[in-house]
């Protein structure tokens, strides 16, 4: 499940009104989430949750479900 908070951050960053996010959704399926905007989304998530991703952690993430999991683990630590 993708949390409302994460969905809102992504929607706001990509100027989208709504999008049906699923665990297996990949970045290139979301309108506007290209390789340039990717870093803006990551920065917005880091800022909103006040967390810091390591380069390797982000490279490993394959879809939004995995991104949510990564955020959850960061918040628990």
């Amino acid at each position: 499940m993708i949390s409302e908070r994460l969905q809102n951050i992504i929607l706001k960053e990509l100027n989208l009104n709504s999008f049906d996010f699923k665990d297996e959704t990949t970045a290139n399926q979301v309108p506007g989430w290209d390789s340039f905007n990717h870093i803006n989304v990551i920065l917005a998530i880091e800022k909103d949750y006040n967390i810091h991703f390591k380069g390797l952690e982000i490279l490993k993430v394959k879809n939004i479900g995995e991104l949510q999991k990564l955020i959850d683990t960061k918040l628990q630590n």
């Binding site: 390789s35 990717h38 870093i39 990551i42 920065l43 380069g55 982000i58 490279l59």
Partner: peptide
Amino acid sequence: LLDYMFKPLQMSFRKWKIYGS
């Protein structure tokens, strides 16, 4: 190159935002 070079570089330079990219 996007996956193995650009993205890691972009992550490393993310503090400089758009200029990092």
